[in-house]
Design a protein around this nucleic acid. Structure first.
Length: 880
DNA sequence: TGGGTCACG
DNA sequence: ACGTACGTGACCCAG
């Protein structure tokens, strides 16, 4: 027989992949990183070796599969991590689906099977490669059996190859002598005890000189150093036992069926399905047998003349459900992609008679005629459509739907939606065009761009029915239709209106900061005795804790912690630390806010940020470019910045915020009578909590007690832990635990509610809001205590934070719609989680306040009423 | 690009 | 024994 056999040590490579690849989970919460890493290593090897035969060995039982570094340090055995364990059967399923034989035999370890198969194959005339992370296998190396050990260096996988020569070169012993070597030095991860006091160096010296343990023992008097001599004498039996353990049995009764091991097509339909289920997007393109993209794109056509375009629109008009996408960037329209049905997809290029006006008018016509219309990223297209859309209910955004089905992904590009909901593998924009702006792509790759646009429309058309069905199954259709889709328009409107900023004042603010920053810089350098980069936590840590030897050093991964809570403890005693804290505060205000915001002021003197609807895990909105949801307020200096956020000429700002929305939601969702009554009576909730938890008359609560109670209330909402509370309040964990116990005694139904939230999330796999918004919590399945605890806190927090987010979404949609429908000049301009900011025409102020109160308070009717606070002013500073 | 830090709710 | 509060985004540094 001729040819090449490749064997993989399954558990070893899976283990290596597990620790080498960052944690991945699919949308069902199944951990997939080890399988993913294994496949990548496997493909790399197979590409390189092009073997004729291929098989993977597994131990039949792997109860103590473990992380070697950890064990070496701890000196204990630990059960295999749950996240890894659950991937073993998946890996086997994948290999089986690929037609790869699994080498397993009761009573033998994978090592033995590998050794046996390699020896036999070599005797039959094959060359052999064994892939493993385990250096024990080096004993199997020969001139025709190569041991290949993958190593991760700087994120890249490099493979070390060992035939006889390489083993001799690196270890100064022959492969069979590796057994003796291991027996002497021991191996914690394989439970080989070895000889105490003999390490790698000494063992190497002994074996290269005497050839074997037996011979070394025969010449034991000559062995140096003395320590090793004594130890070998004393532990000779241990050495023999170790040798037995280290020796791989190449005579096991295992035989590898070479017919089964013959390399075939790995990329079977079953393997494809499994990869899809595991969401291995990067691996899927290897399945060339399944290339629906080619057949789909056959139905794509580019349209550049008027009569053809008219025909397309006629065809679209006959369809009851179309996919569409206006290809646009930075206010410029490039064309319209239309998918009247899945067999006909067109990209109508903006060109000649096909003007922007024509395309948008035709598109609107289709949207107005009552058919369902599906797209991806509607908000991006609204610049051309907003004014003309009359029946919003017929338009659905697939990206928003995909977000609701799995809000953990963070991004919902067309290619992901195509893969997840239309079983279609396509290339994404980044892959096709990188970061090039569309205008440039249009010049250089017009055909590819047209095809990409067609995919947008096609994917929307093909995926949306699937998405809607899943939403229906999850009882999320109302959430989608009545909350998230209308919100698209609200957010677009807010972005469009923007907020006015006084550029001169902002500049002046920045300059004042600069003066003080320079002063502080000089003083800090003087105190430190040298100049350094204060902005570098690394350099700062060295100055403070090494040069100046300040106490209280805490370590982070990469050096000393210089976080504010550490520095604050030192500030009273060390002037330099106080100055650094002030410097930090000012530097932050200057770089992020004074300078940062200035760059976003548009020609109209306003900032038009972006509100993102598909980012957060809980259902909140996020704000970017710039982030207008984290404008300073907590310190006076920072708060002053809000003076530059002003209403347009002659207008005022109205700020309305929900009072204690999350605690009210908690009260309502838990049904706790005490808490509900407290809100009904409009009590000071933190003071009340303090009086009940600490058993003090309401009027005698001290400010400190109130502050502590407030922290407990926050903690409850965050998913309480005694440790977290103790950190926050600077008290002992024990004390914090007592506070929590007392809190739960006071509000027993809150405890029931939180316990139940965790229980339900564990059963269902997700946490849920009052409006059926879901957040998957895969961490609850983790075998890792820390991760699981995190999952529990998430399960407690998400329904509360998420329900509050739902409520304000309802309110802001209604406020925006009423302002516009009732012909107000006033406009909604910002949302900051529990707060709405309105730019109001002065004569409308009273009516708008009334409107705000109505819509915010009546957004939901729970057993606890929602209350709001409102204020009016010329700037955000005054209004809040 | 990831970590540290810090701004907000 | 483990080592944390929940949710975000921007800036800076270092490799």
């Amino acid at each position: 027989m001729q040819g090449k056999l490749v064997l993989i040590d399954g558990h070893s490579i899976l283990n290596r992949a597990y620790f080498g690849v960052p944690d991945l989970t699919n949308s069902q919460g199944l951990h997939t990183n080890a399988v993913y890493g294994f496949l990548n290593i496997m493909f790399k090897i197979l590409d390189e070796e092009q073997p004729d035969y291929f098989a993977v060995a597994f131990d039949l039982h792997a109860p103590t599969f473990r992380h070697k570094m950890y064990d070496a340090y701890k000196g204990t055995r630990k059960p295999m991590q749950e996240e890894l364990r659950e991937q073993v059967p998946v890996m086997k399923e994948m290999l089986t689906a690929m037609g790869v034989p699994l080498m397993m035999l009761e009573g033998y370890e994978a090592d033995d099977l590998l050794g046996t198969a390699a020896k036999k194959a070599e005797a039959d005339g094959l060359t052999v490669s064994i892939i493993s992370g385990d250096r024990d296998l080096l004993q199997l190396a020969t001139d025709r059996t190569k041991i290949r050990i993958p190593k991760t260096k700087k994120g890249k996988t490099e493979i070390e190859d060992y035939n006889t020569a390489e083993v001799v070169e690196k270890y100064m012993v022959t492969p069979p002598q590796i057994v003796d070597l291991k027996a002497l030095m021991g191996d914690a991860s394989d439970n080989i005890p070895g000889i105490p006091g003999v390490g790698e160096k000494t063992a190497g010296k002994i074996i290269s000189e005497y050839g074997s343990i037996e011979n070394a023992y025969a010449h034991v008097e000559e062995i140096k150093p003395n320590k090793a001599k004594e130890s070998l004498r004393e532990h000779y039996d241990l050495a023999q036992l170790s040798k037995k353990l280290a020796k791989i049995n190449t005579e096991s009764p295992f035989t590898l069926d070479m017919e089964q091991a013959k390399m075939g097509n790995l990329f079977t339909q079953e393997a494809f399905e499994l990869c899809k289920k595991l969401e291995f997007r990067n691996i899927l393109p290897r399945f060339s047998c399944d290339a629906p993209s080619d057949s789909v794109s056959d139905s794509f056509a580019v349209v550049t003349d008027l009569s053809e375009a008219e025909e397309v629109f006629v065809r679209a008009q006959k369809s009851g459900e179309i996919g569409f996408s206006l290809l646009t960037e930075q206010g410029e329209l490039f064309g319209l992609a239309l998918a009247p049905d899945e067999e006909h997809v067109y990209f109508i290029k903006k060109e000649g008679f096909l003007t922007e006006g024509y395309l948008t008018e035709k598109c609107l016509q289709l949207l107005q005629e009552g058919r369902m219309a599906y797209t991806i990223d509607l908000k991006e297209q609204l610049a051309f459509l907003r004014a003309g859309i009359s029946d919003r209910a017929k338009i659905a955004d697939a990206a928003i739907g995909a977000y609701l089905l799995n809000p953990l992904k963070g991004q919902y590009p067309c290619e992901d939606i195509a893969k997840d909901y239309a079983s279609l593998m396509i290339k994404g924009r980044a892959e096709l065009f990188g970061k090039a702006p569309l205008a440039k792509v249009m010049e250089e790759q017009p055909e590819e761009l047209a095809q990409y646009a067609c995919y947008l429309a096609y994917t929307a058309k093909a995926a949306m029915p699937v998405i809607l069905q899943k939403l229906r199954e999850n009882q999320m259709l109302e959430l989608f239709r009545d909350m998230e889709m209308p919100l698209v328009y609200t957010l677009y409107d807010m972005q469009e209106v923007g907020i006015r900023v006084n550029a001169q004042e902002l500049k002046a603010y920045g300059e004042e900061l600069y003066v003080r920053i320079v002063e502080l810089e000089q003083e800090i350098y003087r105190d430190a005795g040298e100049e350094f980069n204060i902005n570098s936590p690394k350099q700062l840590g060295v100055i403070l804790f090494e040069k100046l030897k300040l106490p209280g050093a805490k370590k982070t991964k990469s050096g000393f912690s210089t976080a504010a809570d550490v520095l604050e403890k030192l500030a009273p005693d060390y002037a330099i630390v106080a100055k650094i804290l002030e410097y930090r505060q000012l530097a932050k205000l200057k770089s992020t806010y004074a300078d940062g915001l200035a760059g976003f002021i548009a020609a109209d003197g306003r900032i038009h940020g972006t509100f993102n609807q598909t980012i957060t895990a809980t259902g909140r909105i996020s704000s970017t470019d710039p982030n207008l949801q984290n404008i300073p307020v907590r310190t006076e200096l920072g708060r002053l910045l809000r003076k530059v956020f002003i209403a347009k000429e002659g207008y005022v700002l109205i700020d309305a915020d929900y009072s204690q929305i999350e605690l009210r939601v908690l009260a309502a969702m838990s049904g706790d009578e005490t808490l509900i009554a407290a809100f009904r009576d409009n009590a000071d909730i933190h003071r009340l909590t303090a009086s009940q938890v600490f058993h003090i008359p309401f009027d005698e609560v001290t400010p400190l007690q109130r502050r502590n109670a407030k922290a407990v209330n926050f903690g409850i909402v965050y998913g309480i832990s005694a440790f977290g509370l103790s950190e926050d309040l600077h008290i002992s964990v024990k004390e914090a635990g007592e506070y929590i116990d007392k809190y739960f005694q006071t509000y027993p139904k809150v405890k029931d509610f939180l316990d139940n939230a965790v229980k339900e999330a564990k059963e269902k796999g997700y946490a849920e809001t009052l409006f059926h918004r879901r957040r998957p919590v895969p961490e609850l399945k983790s075998g890792n205590f820390m991760q699981r605890s995190f999952g529990e806190r998430v399960a407690m927090n998400s329904p509360i934070q998420g329900t509050a987010a739902d409520i304000i979404k309802i309110a802001m949609i209604r406020v925006n719609e009423r302002l516009r429908a009732e012909q107000f000049q006033s406009r909604l301009i910002l949302q900051i989680h529990d707060e709405l900011l309105i730019e109001a025409e002065p004569s409308e102020v009273e009516a708008v306040k009334e409107l705000l109160a109505q819509e915010m308070v009546n957004a939901v009717h729970l057993s606890v009423a929602m209350e709001i606070d409102m204020k009016t002013g010329n700037s955000w500073y005054e209004a809040h």
